[in-house]
Every structure is written in C-alpha cells, then in structure tokens.
C-alpha cells in the first residue's frame, strides 16, 4: 500500500491507520492530509490509531506536525483510540503530544470537533449582532 486513504466526513477528514507504517508512508500521509484540508476546507481531522501496536518518535512527530499544520489551516486534529500500552510507552519515551487533542474513540472525537464547530458558529453569530 502506497497511501493511506483519507475519507471526507461532513466537515471533517477521517484517517484510519491500519498498517504498520514505514517512514515514507507516514510522510506521505502528512502531505496528503495538508492538501486535503485545504481542498475540502475541512474544519477537523480525525486520526484513528486504534489498530496501531506502537507509536515511536517518528509517528509521534508526524501526529504533532499534522496537528500544528491543521491548526494554521483552522482545523482541529483529534487522535483517537490510542491503546493503553502505546500510551504508557509514549509517556516513557518522553512524548506528550501536547499540541494534539485526543479522544477515546471516533464517536467521541467527532463530538469534540462538532462541539468546537458549533461553538465557533455561535461566536460568529454573536459577532454579527
């Protein structure tokens, strides 16, 4: 597999990582996501990593980068479904992914993105008054 598929889901993009990614695949995903956020004017990015058995510093950096880039493009990134063993290992490794939002599963992640969207819409409405 050369690319990880990116699905459009209302205002958000959904990526489900199901393979043990080699580094090039991760880099490609980062680039693909950036261009898709712009192309679809996406307001949120959901990355489901529930199938991942490990997250090393390279993948961690990819997640951090995606979050930072999407923030600039006014989209929220939520990483969902991290396994307990992976979380423990990441903390021990020294990665906190401080810039990344997290949620337990896709449903909760989606709710997080929608919650922010309705908040900002409400703000917009307030501004118009």
């Amino acid at each position: 597999m050369d690319r990880i598929p990116i699905l459009k889901f209302g205002n958000a993009l959904l990526v489900t990582i199901q393979v043990d990614m080699h580094d090039r695949l991760a880099t490609t995903l980062e680039e693909d996501l950036t261009s898709k956020i712009v192309a679809h004017s996406a307001r949120g990015v959901l990355i489901d990593i529930s199938a991942l058995e490990i997250v090393d510093s390279f993948i961690g950096r990819m997640l951090d980068n995606i979050a930072a880039v999407s923030r600039i493009l006014d989209a929220d990134t939520v990483v969902v479904g991290m396994r307990p063993a992976v979380a423990i290992t990441l903390v021990e490794l020294g990665l906190s992914l401080a810039g990344v939002k997290t949620a337990l599963n896709v449903e909760r992640g989606m709710a997080l993105i929608e919650g922010r969207l309705s908040e900002s819409e409400a703000d917009d409405a307030d501004d118009e008054d």
């Binding site: 490990i54 997250v55 390279f58 063993a85 423990i88």
Partner: peptide, 12 residues
C-alpha cells in the same frame, strides 16, 4: 506493555 516498550525502542 513490555513488548510495546521494546518494539518501540527497536524502532528508534
């Protein structure tokens, strides 16, 4: 957890 730790270390 220990599997995950050493696999992650091996990747690094």
């Amino acid at each position: 957890v220990d599997q995950t730790k050493i696999v992650t270390a091996s990747s690094e």
